[in-house]
Structure formats: C-alpha cells, structure tokens
Design a protein around this nucleic acid. Sequence first.
DNA 1: CGGAGGCTTGAGCGCCATCAACGAGTGTGG
DNA 2: CCACACTCGTTGATGGCGCTCAAGCCTCCG
Lengths: 251, 251
Amino acid sequence: MAVESKKERSDVSLLRPDCRPRLAENLLQGARKLHAASLSAPLRSVGSGTVLIRPDRPSDGLFHLYRGWATRTRYWTDGRRAILSIYVPGDVIGIESALLDRAPDEVVTVSPAMIHTIDAGTVANLMTSPPTATYIAWLISEAQRRGDGVAGAIGRLDARERLALMLLDFHERLRRRNLASPSSYVLPLTQQHIADHLGLTIVHINRTLHWFRAERIVDIEKHIVTIRDLDRLRQIAMADRALGGAARRTA
Amino acid sequence: MAVESKKERSDVSLLRPDCRPRLAENLLQGARKLHAASLSAPLRSVGSGTVLIRPDRPSDGLFHLYRGWATRTRYWTDGRRAILSIYVPGDVIGIESALLDRAPDEVVTVSPAMIHTIDAGTVANLMTSPPTATYIAWLISEAQRRGDGVAGAIGRLDARERLALMLLDFHERLRRRNLASPSSYVLPLTQQHIADHLGLTIVHINRTLHWFRAERIVDIEKHIVTIRDLDRLRQIAMADRALGGAARRTA
DNA sequence: CGGAGGCTTGAGCGCCATCAACGAGTGTGG
DNA sequence: CCACACTCGTTGATGGCGCTCAAGCCTCCG
C-alpha cells in the first residue's frame, strides 16, 4: 500500500512575508466578538433528540452548545447513516452550513442540552466585520481539519485504531474545557452512534470495546469512560502521525 | 444498522429574517474580487509531482489551479496514506489551510499543471474585505461539504458505490467548467491514488474497475474515462440521497 | 409488569486485504 | 541498440476483519 515514489519531487518555494501576527490578532478579536454575541443570545434548554438543523433547508443561524452533546448526521435512502461530526459542550454548531443555502446534514442533540441561539440575521451582521468573518472562516477550517482526521481514520485505520482515536479526541477536547478528569469523562453516545461515526457496526463496536476492557486499556460503563492505560491507548491510536510525506522517507 | 428511534423528536423553530439576498450579493462580490486577485497573480507552469503545500508549515498562500490536477494527502508513520481531497482544474487550493498556522496535509500536483499563485500577504489583505472574507468562508464550507460526502461514502458505502460516486463527482465538476464531454473525460490519477482516496487497495480498485467495464457501465483506458451507461452509474452511486432524516420515516 | 431501547454474545460468511507474480510501457545509460 | 530500472496495471490464491443474522439479557419507565 502507498508505495513511495523515488522520483525526485520538485518544490515551490515562495517569499512569505510575515503576516501571521496580524492574522492572529484578527482571529482573537473575532473570537471575542462572536463570544460576546453568543453570550447575549438567548439561552435555552432542550431535551435529548432535539433537531437543531434540518437538512436541505437554509440554516437558522448558529448554536453555541453550552451543555450537552449533539451529532451531525447524513442519511441515505435505504436507512444507512453516517455521523459526520460530534459536538461536545463548548462547540459552535452550524458554522459549516451558515453560508450554504441548504444544510447538507441534520444536527440533533443526543443528550439534554443548553444552547445559545444566534439567529441568522445576527450572523449576517457578524460577517460584515472582517475580524469575525475571519474568525468564522477559521472555525470552519478547524471543523474541516477535524473531519479530515475522521475521514482518514475510517479509510485507513482498523476498528481498534479508530475507536482509540475517537476516545482520545473526546478526552482532549473535554480536558481543554475542564470537563473531564485526567482519566475519565462522560460520553452520552450510544454504541450505535459510535458505530455510525466510525463507519462500523454496533456489533463490532461492542466487541472492540470488550477487547479494550479485557486489556484493561479503557472501560466504558453507564456512559462513563475510564481510561486505565493512557499510553497504550495513545499507542493504538497512532497519535504520532507523520509530520510530513518527505520527512518520513528514510531510505 | 441505524435503527430509527420511534421516540418523538421535538424541533427548534426560530424566526428567520430573510437575509439571504444580502449574503448572496456579498458572495458574488467576494467571488469577483478573489477571481480578479487570482488573474493578476503570477501564472506558473509546474510539473507532475510538484509539492504545493507542505504539512506542518504555515501556508504560502492560495493556488488557483488553472490546468492540471492535484491531491491533498495525509500520511501515517507506517506509510499508510489517505488522499483527503482531489483538486480539478478551476479549483482553489489552500483555503482550508490558509488560516491555520500549520497545514495539516500535503498538496501535490498529479499531472503537469498551471497555477496562479496568490501569496499569503495578498490573502491577508483579502481577508480585510468582508465580501471576500465571506466568500472564502463559503469556499471552505463547500470544501467541507465535499469532504463530508467522501467521508460518509467511505464509512457506509461499498467499493462499487464509492467508485461510482467518485467518477460521477469528477464528471459533474468538469462538465460545469466545460472540461468534459457528456460521456467522457481525462482522469490523470493512478489506481493507487483512487485507492488512497476511497479507502481501498489498488488491487480492489482494479477489480472493481474491471467489473464496471465488464458490465459496460464505465470504461477507463489510458486515463480516459468513458461513461457508457450513465443511468446505471447513477443508480449504483445512490445519487438519490435522502432529503432528510424525518421525511424518510414512512412507518 | 410489560414494553422499548440499548447492550451482549454466538455462528457463519463475504467483502476486501494481503501476498505474490507477471506484462506493458517508458525513460536511461552503457 | 539493448539491458536495466522503475512505474503502473493486471490477475490468482488465500485469509481475515468486520458484517449479517439471530437470540437473549439488562435497565429504565409508564
């Protein structure tokens, strides 16, 4: 698989003026503005299974998930489905579809949730300010990067690797927001959700989780994930992704 | 798989002021500006295998692919790789990583190409204009939507469906730019590229293509794709994706 | 207490990976 | 001009990871 070409590959090198600082400043400013807009937006409490975004309709705006989890799902006619992304508390929902005239996917809460709702008009106003527009573009970039990680994993990693990657990903995201202890967190997803997210079946998820428990690596009980061997989990997840194509070639 | 819950799902309905026209106008204006910037940017001719974006480095700016194809690839330490997106003539390369401080993936041309190169400084300037910033955000959204399609396909469709979907996708994108006849186009990818893009092996791609030819649906010879039975191809690709989760439930 | 949703486990099989080998086409240097 | 290296495409044999089908269990809740 993926045999490396030995042919020399040329490179495009360009002059790169240092415009990063200004970009970083813009992003920070945009983040503050969006955050402020979110805080002043109405906060509502919704139940599990609430549809936040309906596919093939223009978006109603942005949702800032203050508490609870949600999934973005795509369906096929025969009932197959794929969960393309999973939102944890603190995430912004709807940026991907805010600019599209029809949302490609359905977003549904998978637990009771509290959300700030920024209506479409306000979003349109925010886009008129360069810093917030830039920040929103950055948010979408980040979302895409995350999605690419999952896509690559589904395409090239086996069930254990995918599951390890997902569990670690949730752990890191929650830790960053102080919503997880060093070795444990709450995961309000069913095994069916996990299966649809990782491109596997519920039966295989169940067996793989069983293996993780038997190996004393990760234990999931009652939607509580307990990481017993973080190093081993990281090793399985191949967290050490190669830093580059060319750098990896040692022959 | 994907058993539907019979539990009633509540809905969030919001007031939705009609801000679409202004958004559309902004997008159009942004598109024109970016297009102009692209046209006034230097045009260069590069060979196949040219590295346009190196992973883990800040991006050098944007590339407008005027002629030729390119791939965006992610590598693992053990040599596995995933081609996360494929760029055809007319596509803009580098928007996904323009705002990130390190590009997640490597972008390489897979055929001789001609590209307009917009340097990072110019891009930073473009971001200060709301219409172009909005347009760039829209471009990233579109890119993500496309990536989600591939991700979902890899997770839930089999080899024939994935291949059919990919061949149709290329056909439509090229047709939109008048770069393909109604039933044929040039595809400068090797079977290894296709395999890495669809999460399969080169051997299986080869066998599936053999089947497509035997069934007189699609014929690929010398990098020329000839569609012999478009209806059947569409049928295999399940192009008729469900329009929504709830609408599909008939029980 | 009955029903629904979710979890668990067993048996069998199929899609796709792996390993291996070969041919065609192309560029390269002796 | 031919040997050589290299890439790409092609095909056969074999096996395994994960799917499918099926059944039983647990927990929660009206």
